[in-house]
């Protein structure tokens, strides 16, 4: 799987960072504006797919040595973990809460426990999409 497309590769190097940053933004902002774990995760996967298309499998793997199956598992642990966390406050499984906190540079911010849950979703989505793509891409 060797491409030699200079333009695509050069553009990808720039644009993938932009899309990734946008994906992270969309993920964090999901509670207020359109976005969230699913969309953020899918968008991040799209970046990775773009990288795969522009470069080849081995190159991407060397640059980002991530085990996506592990990522899926970690995501599930996050999601279940927020649910189990509810037990320590003797509220039903998966009860969520939120609060407003003051941060030095960022100012007043809302933090919710759903963010941890959404992070789980985010990781699972990336993990799943990339496991599938990578597995089939590597098949000979």
């Amino acid at each position: 799987m060797k491409y030699n497309d200079i333009i695509l590769q050069t553009v990808t190097k720039f644009i993938s960072f932009l899309i990734f940053l946008f994906a992270v933004y969309i993920f964090f902002n999901g509670h207020q504006e359109p976005g969230g774990g699913f969309i953020g995760g899918l968008m991040t996967s799209a970046v990775l797919v773009l990288l795969l298309l522009a470069f080849d499998m081995e190159t991407v793997r060397r640059a980002l040595p991530i085990d996506y199956k592990l990522m899926t598992a970690i995501g599930l642990v996050f999601a279940v973990g927020t649910g189990v966390g509810s037990f320590f406050f003797s509220v039903p499984f998966l009860s969520q809460t939120f609060g407003y906190f003051h941060f030095p540079v960022l100012g007043e911010l809302e933090l919710t426990t759903t963010l941890a849950f959404d992070l789980g979703v985010y990781l699972v989505v990336i993990g799943t999409a990339m496991t599938i793509i990578q597995t089939i891409g590597e098949d000979k």
């Binding site: 504006e33 359109p34 976005g35 999601a79 649910g83 998966l94 969520q96 849950f117």
Partner: peptide, 24 residues
């Protein structure tokens, strides 16, 4: 739930259990 995006709030909060099983 402290969220303005109702769809997202339903997914991660009101119906969080469904979403948990979905990602499973």
């Amino acid at each position: 739930a402290g969220g303005n995006n109702v769809v997202n709030v339903i997914l991660v909060d009101f119906r969080g259990f469904d979403t948990l099983l979905e990602i499973l």
